[in-house]
Design a protein around this nucleic acid. Sequence first.
DNA 1: TGAGGAACTGCAACTGTTCCACTTTCTGTC
DNA 2: GACAGAAAGTGGAACAGTTGCAGTTCCTCA
Lengths: 207, 207
Amino acid sequence: MPDSPPPGRRERKKAATRQAIADAALELFLEHGFDRVSVRDVAERADVSTTTLFAHFPSKEALVFDREQDVDAALAAAVRERPEEQGVVEALRAHALKSWVPIVTDPRRADFTALVGDTPALREYGERMWMRHADTLSAVIAEELDREPDDPACAALARFVLEIPALTAGRQDPRATVETVFDLLLHGWHAQAGPADGPASAQAGRG
Amino acid sequence: MPDSPPPGRRERKKAATRQAIADAALELFLEHGFDRVSVRDVAERADVSTTTLFAHFPSKEALVFDREQDVDAALAAAVRERPEEQGVVEALRAHALKSWVPIVTDPRRADFTALVGDTPALREYGERMWMRHADTLSAVIAEELDREPDDPACAALARFVLEIPALTAGRQDPRATVETVFDLLLHGWHAQAGPADGPASAQAGRG
DNA sequence: TGAGGAACTGCAACTGTTCCACTTTCTGTC
DNA sequence: GACAGAAAGTGGAACAGTTGCAGTTCCTCA
């Protein structure tokens, strides 16, 4: 995270432009709604050309998530640098509780959360954002456990963990949901559903 | 599935138009690639206006998946009408093996599968297509087990099961992958990773 | 100090998608 | 059998996201 030497004027200006665009975008989106603001509007507010805008952000949706950044690295680190004796699933649980839950529950970001939650395009983009880290996470898990890089169980675990943000979105108690999901991942449906796994005979209603 | 009475000329013509569009699209996409064919090209080949094209399909991607149809119903039925004594997870496993795996492995669809696999837009659209059934499946599972409709464990299970097509895509042995993933879901990571869950101390490499 | 490159601009074009007003074709009903 | 009304289709314009291009300005670094 240390930007070691003085970054130089050019890079500072570039960063400033990028920030100006992101700020303008968020401001306009929060005020009028994502769909009623055009990319050209954002560019104009930030006083740049649309070409410049797209030189900094790959898409309109990306304007909102200008901090996609180092989720990848944090995720990998959470697994690699876990305490001795802690399993990977527990490490991921801790990471989720410590780094993800606060973001969703922070009241200062309520309006931002609402913007994303109320805009299908943004919700989808956000979910997809998480999934983009599945390959990295899968590889790290496999590496930590001395398995083949494409081990299907590791791939599955990675994707399932990255589903969690989507699963907790819009729930009253994200923390509890996270716990439930991790218990499921760790001990399996069989354990959490009771030994009988809810056979069909237990219920009344049927087709 | 029975279109009981004679469908009437109008409906037949409509179906024919729709089919002509889908055929033209697939033909052009397979020949030149999804990204190098415009919607206007497809419309022209099918001899309709783009307006008509979008009256039949909600998006360019949808042209490829003109059979999204009754996955929802089949999924719900697989759970509801499972044999006595079979758990929901086992029912879903059976469904996946019987209904999903053959589609991916069918050699007659190799070129189609390749088209989707090689086109990011299509792969994403396909994955999202599956996830659209998560709410239905979650509700059915909860209902079968007498739980709250928004039970987080049911929601998680549903989403995880629907991740399976994405997880098996492009693998050499989809069948084995499906089995592995269901074992993970059923018995948990703890069971499949061994009792120690691979604590950090087991490995050498560390950050 | 000067060369080269990066950031930015303006504009035009392309593509997916929607809107509009209008024609054709079918269907159900008196 | 004629007719009202709905449904399907048309053509074209327009909008919004995105990209390409040629040219300008401004840093950086040797």
